[in-house]
Design a protein around this nucleic acid. Structure first.
Length: 358
DNA sequence: TCCGGATCGTAATTTACTTCA
DNA sequence: CATGAAGTAAATTACGATCCG
């Protein structure tokens, strides 16, 4: 007996532009529960928000731009890093570079936690030249506007506020000016920036342009960087999900192989039994009244274990006491229930026939 | 302790595709 | 219907950090 495995990757990540990231569907969830796998990653949260939500976001954005956000504290904890969260939106942080024209938040400095990364080293006009220009043209490959942020980062890495750090940042910036931004310099985002983006990703795995802009604004990144970050993040998530799926399917395959082996063995036994007792098959099938699919009680001659092998939970139990139907099987093949009924009926009826004959 | 290669994580780029005005 | 812009996924490249001998 060859089992035909309707193996497919569950929701078979057919992506649509409106749902670029596939979410674990119900079958996944059930399966995850059944096998104890962490099948539904946190990305179930990552559904797109409705249009009305976007309107809310616009309002928030407006508030931010007007400077009406209540908090003026620098990023200090994850709670403050959630940009669009309903829970935190009224207390959404006001990044240091939003507090005034100077762009330098003395509060952040005074705490010793000076995050130079957050401090725009260029003046407002320069920033517009770099960031906003990139915003206008969403795709700015190797744009020359990299230097401002890279300077920030190099200082951040070298040691906040140290003369050495600033000097190194300056030299690096000048190097880039020499190269005219032609080099593909990779910069690492700060922990705060990553955390912020991560939290944002939980809210929207595909932010709209305004949200990107707001994020870029908040994190002192170019919109293009935010966009790239989300692209990569989605890719990573999908890769991870694929790995999980793969692992899960491997387990499913093992289980099915084991079941197949068991059924083969059972079939062999039945054949042996048939050859040993050639008469039992001559018993008319009409003498057997029990049918597992309709759960009618068999004749009194049948053994209890075979009389009604459907427990209350609806799962069939084979002669080994194993459940033969499980959520993961239905996950693997959604038509399992439709298919298995006649099969199971046939098999168990035969078994009843056997037992009746015996 | 320093050095250099291997490896890993991830930022950035390129390409192909879809959608929509 | 054709077209171009915009957005995204997927693939790839390349950089920086870390590990290890």
């Amino acid at each position: 007996m060859d089992m035909e495995l309707g193996l497919y990757l569950g929701d078979a990540p057919v992506r649509t532009p409106k749902q670029p990231f596939f979410l674990a569907d119900d079958s996944h969830k059930n399966a995850g529960v059944e096998l104890g796998l962490g099948f539904c990653m946190g990305d179930g949260l990552l559904e797109r928000r409705d249009e009305e939500d976007e309107e809310e976001d616009e309002e928030e954005l407006e508030d931010e731009r007007r400077g009406t956000a209540s908090s003026a504290h620098p990023i200090t904890s994850l709670q403050h890093l959630i940009p669009f969260s309903r829970a935190t939106k009224k207390s959404s942080l006001k990044p240091p570079w939003h507090t005034g024209n100077s762009g330098i938040n003395m509060d952040g400095c005074s705490r010793g936690g000076l995050d130079v990364n957050m401090i725009p080293l260029m003046d407002e006009t320069d920033q517009d030249g770099g960031g906003s220009a990139a915003a206008g043209t969403s795709s700015s490959p190797n744009s020359g506007g990299v230097s401002s942020f890279q300077m920030d980062l190099s200082i951040y890495r070298t040691g906040a506020g140290t003369v050495e750090g600033i000097e190194r940042a300056s030299s690096r910036a000048s190097d880039e000016e020499e190269n005219n931004g032609s080099t593909r310099k990779k910069l690492r985002l700060s922990k705060e920036q990553s955390a912020y983006l991560e939290e944002s990703f939980k809210e929207h795995n595909t932010p709209n342009p305004k949200q990107k802009l707001a994020l870029a604004d908040k994190l002192n990144l170019r919109p293009r960087q935010v966009e790239v970050w989300f692209q990569n993040r989605r890719a990573r998530t999908k890769l991870k999900q694929t790995e999980v799926d793969c692992e899960y399917l491997k387990k499913c395959c093992e289980k099915l192989t084991e079941e197949n082996r068991r059924l083969q063995k059972e079939l062999q036994e039945l054949r042996a039994l048939k050859s040993a007792h050639p008469y039992y098959m001559h018993v008319p099938a009409t003498t057997l009244t029990m049918c597992p699919s309709c759960e009618k009680i068999a004749s009194a001659t049948t053994t209890p274990t075979l009389t009604n092998n459907k427990p209350d939970n609806g799962l069939e139990i084979n002669h080994d006491g194993q459940k033969t139907d499980s959520p993961w099987s239905s996950f693997l093949n959604p038509f399992w229930h439709q298919q298995k009924t006649p099969t199971a009926t046939t098999t168990t009826t035969t078994r009843h026939h056997n037992s009746a004959a015996l």
